[in-house]
Design a binder for these strands. Structure first.
Lengths: 115, 115
DNA sequence: GCGATAGTCAACCAAGTGGTTGAATGAAAT
DNA sequence: ATTTCATTCAACCACTTGGTTGACTATCGC
């Protein structure tokens, strides 16, 4: 993996590690929202919420279009997909593992049958 | 989402946000390794690497079996799957988005054809 | 038992995080 | 032109992080 790609994953996973930001992503999946709209549900200051948006933007998860004095945010699905792909690489692994566990549990009574 | 589940995702994503820990996961996917074996490739102290392992363990990504003086680490695939599932929830979204973009680009020349 | 080995723990440090407030910028409305 | 609104910026704070070192604990081999 290239240095740049790794750096990107650092930012993406870090951005996803905060529940406020995950909720922002969830809401942005339904519709584009301005910074104030994103900030509304939380008790923190607007500046605080704005920082969260910035983290999402720097991770590439969100794109912003400035229109007059409002900043409209939209989800960038490709970046989310890249984190997905990183984890997906291990999918075969956990399928195998869980299958093996399953087999082990089922086969316990007749363990020597295959030998 | 329950508070506990959210808390778990915090830890899992945070653990994944570090390249050293991602590499440890990659190596653990090939075979179980002891803490010293995990630490070997890095220039940091053993105590430093041990801290990384602890972060992975507390996130539930790694399980440890103490055997004598060595600690053998194995990947816990279920936890990795839970992070995967969180992101997968948005899969339909980015597929739709990318499809829409694709359609938009293809249809540009004959944009009024559908009306 | 004695020394080497595997690993953790505690204290420390520099840098980063998540939040605050108050001032600054720049567009909108009157 | 003035005010109001959306947002950022800068400085600050308490806490966490990723790393170090040195001391400690427990096991293994002789």
């Amino acid at each position: 993996m290239s240095e740049a790609q790794s750096e990107r994953l650092n930012h993406v996973f870090r951005a996803l590690a905060d529940p406020t930001r995950r909720e922002m992503i969830r809401r942005l999946a339904r519709q584009d929202l301005t910074v104030s709209e994103l900030a509304m549900p939380y008790q923190m200051s607007l500046a605080g919420a704005s920082k969260h948006v910035k983290v999402l933007e720097e991770a590439g998860l969100v794109r912003r279009t400035v229109r007059g004095r409002t900043h409209l945010c939209r989800l960038d699905p490709a970046t989310l997909a890249s984190a997905y792909e990183w984890i997906r690489f291990y999918e075969h692994f956990w399928n195998d593992q869980l299958d093996a566990l399953d087999r082990e549990l089922r086969d316990l009574p007749g363990e020597e049958s295959g030998l």
